[in-house]
Each structure stands twice: as C-alpha cells, then as structure tokens.
C-alpha cells in the first residue's frame, strides 16, 4: 500500500484522461514526424553511399562535412536568412503598423491582397519575377526600352535578386505576426505616453516595440528558419550564384546519390537552426512577455 502511494505521484500523469485521448495523435506524430527524423539521424551514421540501415555506424559523413567546404554554403544560408529578416523587419513594420492601427476597414482588403499570392505555387511566382526582370524581352526591360528608350542593366542572376526573392516569398510570414504583435499595443498606453511628453521616437522605442515584441520575435524566427532552408530563390533568381545549404542537401540525395552525407548535412542544419530558435526563445521568454499584457 505504501509502495503504491509512493509510486502514484510519479506516474499519475499516465492515468490522465487527456493523455489517453491524445494517444492516437501521439502515435501519428511518432510515425509521421519523429519517425522520419530518426531515420535521417540514423542514416547520417551509415557508411557513405549506402542505401540501407544495416551498415556499421560511422562518423565519416560528419568528417566529410567538416573537411570539405560545406561551411561556405552554411554561412551563406545563415547570412541570407539574417539579411531577409532585417530587410523584412524594416519593410513590414510600417505596413504592420498601418494594418493594425491606421487603415481601418481597408485593412481587410489589403490583407487579402497580401495573402492571395500564397495560393500560387512559389515556383510559379518566382518564375513570374524572372519574366519581369529578364533583359531583352523581359517585362521591365522591354517596357523601359519601348517607352523611355532606356537600356536597363542586368537585374537577374545576382545575390541581390536572390535576397529580393527571399524577401518577396517570406513577407507574409513576417508581416502577420507583426500585425498581431502591434495590435497588442493599446492606444491608451500610447496616448498616455504622448500626454506625458514622450516623443514619437520614444513611444516607438519604449512602448510599441517592447509590447509588440512577441509578434516581432515570432515573425523573425519564422522568416529566419524558412529562409535558412530555402533553395528555389537562389536557383531561379540568383542563377545559383551562391549554393545554399539546402541545395547541397538536395544534391547529395539526388545526383550525388550519397544519402548518408545528405542526412548528416540535414542533421547539422536541424541542430543549428533548432539550437538558435531555442536560444532566442529562452532569452526572450515569450510567456513572460505575453503575460505582461
């Protein structure tokens, strides 16, 4: 009896009806989400170029990752992801402020216009940009020549074009969390600050930004992680001027036919991105910020 009493608190959670109800979804997640990741993790320790999981485990793939120049793709992917976050933060902030506070009934219409492109495949949208920016017969260059007689410089196949593509594709992922964040800033607080003599700059820095921080952080993280794994923008708009880490992973799984190497690169990206997200979330305690409201 005493033993039962002692054990009970430790395993009490096992008897929770909530857990029992969640069992089906837990099984589904284990098979459909955790399972593949575990498989990738195991594959990363298989001998190079093997296609089964029965080889003798080795760390050779991780050695290859360190010895070869994969750090270049990793650094570039991080740089592009960081660049995208910075550009989008600057571009989205005024728009988000407008959507949350100023545009009134037009906000819905504007939101719809911003969301609509998401229904079209990313590849198609990027290819649209290619048609727009191509020299010669491209929409922009063709129009500039026909209307103003101007010869435009090359705009495609550069790092700027890649960054533009990333910003274009991931804009909604930054904008909408930001709108949510900014709508948590109550007008009374801003007015109170203003009445007490705060300048517009002080209001933004000391009232709006701290209160909207959860939205900003979530938007930033979403954008960062998504652009870290992006590869189409660099291929279609950037002409592969730089090779992103996702392109290296794709190449290892396809033309390279080295699944273990691809798995090792995937694990590395997963650990780095996951680690970074956890770090940021820990520094900026979202719960605490949200409760502050």
């Amino acid at each position: 009896m005493i033993a039962r009493l002692l054990i009970r608190p430790a395993f009490a959670w096992l008897r929770q009806p909530g857990l029992h109800a969640a069992v089906p979804i837990l099984i589904l997640l284990a098979i459909g989400f955790i399972g593949p990741l575990v498989l990738v993790a195991i594959f990363s320790f298989m001998p190079p170029r093997s296609f089964t999981l029965d080889g003798a485990p080795t760390i050779e793939n991780y050695q290859t990752v360190v010895e070869q120049s994969f750090y270049l793709s990793l650094l570039r992917s991080f740089a592009f992801a960081a660049g995208t976050v910075v550009v989008l933060a600057l571009v989205c902030y005024p728009v988000a402020l407008g959507l949350a506070k100023l545009f009134g009934r037009y906000a819905g219409l504007l939101t719809l216009i911003l969301v609509l492109p998401l229904f079209v495949s990313e590849n198609v949208r990027l290819f649209g940009w290619v048609l727009f920016l191509l020299k010669g017969g491209g929409v922009l260059a063709g129009a500039a020549k026909a209307v103003f007689g101007l010869e435009l410089a090359d705009m495609l196949y550069s790092n700027t074009a890649t960054l533009m593509g990333l910003c274009y594709v991931y804009l909604p992922f930054m904008l909408f969390p930001m709108v949510l964040g900014l709508s948590m800033v109550q007008r009374d607080v801003v007015e109170a600050a203003s009445d007490l003599g705060a300048s517009r700059w002080q209001i933004m820095r000391e009232i709006e930004l701290p209160l909207a921080m959860p939205g900003l952080v979530i938007g930033g993280l979403l954008t960062f992680v998504l652009s870290l794994g992006a590869l189409t923008e660099s291929k279609v708009l950037g002409g592969s001027k730089v090779i992103m880490i996702a392109a290296d992973i794709e190449s290892a799984f396809t033309f390279g036919q080295n699944w273990p190497l691809g798995s090792a690169l995937s694990m590395l990206l997963l650990v780095l991105a996951g680690g970074l997200v956890l770090l940021v979330l820990r520094k900026l305690d979202l719960d605490a910020i949200l409760k502050r409201r």
């Binding site: 020299k135 010669g136 017969g137 291929k235």
Partner: peptide, 19 residues
C-alpha cells in the same frame, strides 16, 4: 558561367532574351 540552373525552360528563356 553567367547562370547555373536546373530548368531547361529557364535556360531557353535566358538564351532567347540574350542573357
């Protein structure tokens, strides 16, 4: 190379438009 890409349509377009 001016550009690297995996899509033949992309290459043909670049060829046709003088890229």
């Amino acid at each position: 190379a001016k550009l690297l890409g995996g899509d033949p349509v992309q290459m043909n377009l670049a060829l046709i438009n003088g890229e």
